[in-house]
């Protein structure tokens, strides 16, 4: 009898220990946020967002960094989203179950776990040395696209798998072809969950530092990539340019890393302020993703 009473006590204790262990990570996260905000809030402001990096910490800003992040994200999205969703559709809706499909699946599972810095090395060999893209927006965007591709593929597959097969059957029964069924029924039905996966993947890409360092993305960039749309006084007044994709860049996490590695205290404050901006973006994207997932949960 006493051993049963002991079990009951252990049971009650575990309820407490389990909750504590679960919340521990969140407490640390809270400590992190408080630490960063208290370190960096005084540097935040309009000037910080609109100034280029500088040798003087109190004048330095993240203008080129956040514009660079925007450029890189657009480039990454252009390549990763269609390719990732397309690949997910193929594997989930078209591919027959055989050894070749099996091979592709193991391959994608492995790619999802390959350290991000390896993608940097791939980019170094492929985009910089072979294709001579230099340390450009295009090279950086392509590397991050390859990096998040497996994430998008896996979440697309999961999203499509959750679409009930009765929807597919109904569509086929009306004489729809495979692509019509996928395009008009399965994709729209899985859209919310695919979008969630894409947002999470993009939020991961925004925070990536290591692969971009590997291709030698410069850390001191006091200028922006060439504006894609420029206005001038001569006909045709608007000048479009893709030059920006071939220009050098920096991104927020690299700028932060650069400041963290400096010995001067002032730059550490800049780093903290930069982190506040970066964290705000990633946490906002995650919040949107969580909300979308929650909204899509109850459909079937």
């Amino acid at each position: 009898m006493s051993s049963r009473r002991l079990d009951k006590k252990i049971d009650a204790a575990f309820k407490f220990v389990g909750l504590a262990a679960t919340l521990f990570g969140l407490v640390v996260l809270a400590a992190l946020v408080i630490d960063v905000v208290s370190d960096g809030h005084q540097r935040l402001g309009w000037d910080f967002l609109t100034s280029y990096p500088s040798r003087k910490p109190e004048q330095a800003g993240i203008f080129s960094a956040w514009v660079g992040t925007l450029w890189i994200m657009i480039t990454t999205a252009i390549f990763a989203i269609p390719l990732g969703i397309g690949s997910g559709i193929y594997l989930e809706e078209y591919a027959k179950r055989n050894r070749w499909t099996d091979f592709i699946e193991i391959n994608i599972a492995n790619l999802a776990g390959v350290p991000s810095i390896i993608y940097g090395i791939l980019g170094l060999g492929l985009f910089i040395r072979m294709m001579h893209l230099d340390r450009s927006v295009l090279a950086g965007g392509l590397i991050l696209a390859l990096l998040i591709l497996p994430v998008i593929i896996l979440s697309t597959r999961e999203a499509l798998r959750s679409v009930p097969s009765s929807i597919r059957e109904a569509s086929y029964a009306l004489g729809a072809t495979k692509w019509q069924t996928v395009r008009h029924q399965v994709l729209p039905a899985g859209f919310g969950n695919i979008l969630t996966g894409v947002i999470l993947a993009m939020s991961r890409a925004i925070g990536e530092t290591a692969p971009l360092i590997t291709i030698g993305a410069l850390t001191y960039i006091p200028f922006l990539p060439t504006n894609p749309v420029a206005f001038n006084k001569e006909i045709p007044y608007i000048h479009l340019s893709l030059q920006g994709f071939l220009d050098p860049f920096t991104v927020l996490p690299i700028q932060i890393f650069n400041w963290v590695s400096r010995p001067q205290k002032g730059f550490l404050v800049d780093a903290a302020a930069g982190i506040i901006v970066l964290l705000t973006i990633t946490l906002a994207m995650n919040a949107i993703a969580i909300y979308l997932r929650y909204k899509n949960q109850k459909r079937w």
Binding site: P164, S166, I167, E169, A170, S171, Y172, A173, L174, G175, A176, T177, Q185, P188, A189, R299
Partner: peptide, 20 residues
């Protein structure tokens, strides 16, 4: 097969309207 299924329609066990 798509022509065939236009000639021969089907209604399923569980109502399965499209989510539209």
């Amino acid at each position: 097969i798509t022509d065939l299924r236009r000639e021969i329609g089907m209604v399923f066990q569980k109502p399965n309207p499209f989510p539209k």
